[in-house]
Amino acid sequence: MPTFTHGEISIDVDEDGFMQEPELWNEEIAKALATTEGVDNLTDEHWKLVNYLREYYLKFGIAPMIRKLCKETGFPLKKVYELFPSGPAKGACKVAGLAKPTGCV
């Protein structure tokens, strides 16, 4: 299984670079993971999204509905893609240390 290293940080990730142990997540890791998504600088808007995902995840153990994410952060889906070019699931969730959703999605 691959390891992701960035500066001081070294974590286990899966084939697509998602964290294997989401409980180890912290803001430094988020910054580091963001670089793999072509986001070198996490702005307040990025953080708003990431934090929302994080909170939801801690409560429900999974990412929220995309529709809910958009509504509750106030970002239309287009905006989410602007912030994280590979999208809410592959981009934002990865930075927030969430696992990939699986199934018919």
Partner: peptide, 17 residues
């Protein structure tokens, strides 16, 4: 109960949303 791994309270949250 589902492929995504949505837990019961998450399920309720989504439907309510």
């Amino acid at each position: 109960g589902n492929h995504l791994g949505v837990q019961p309270h998450g399920f309720k949250d989504s439907i309510e949303f």
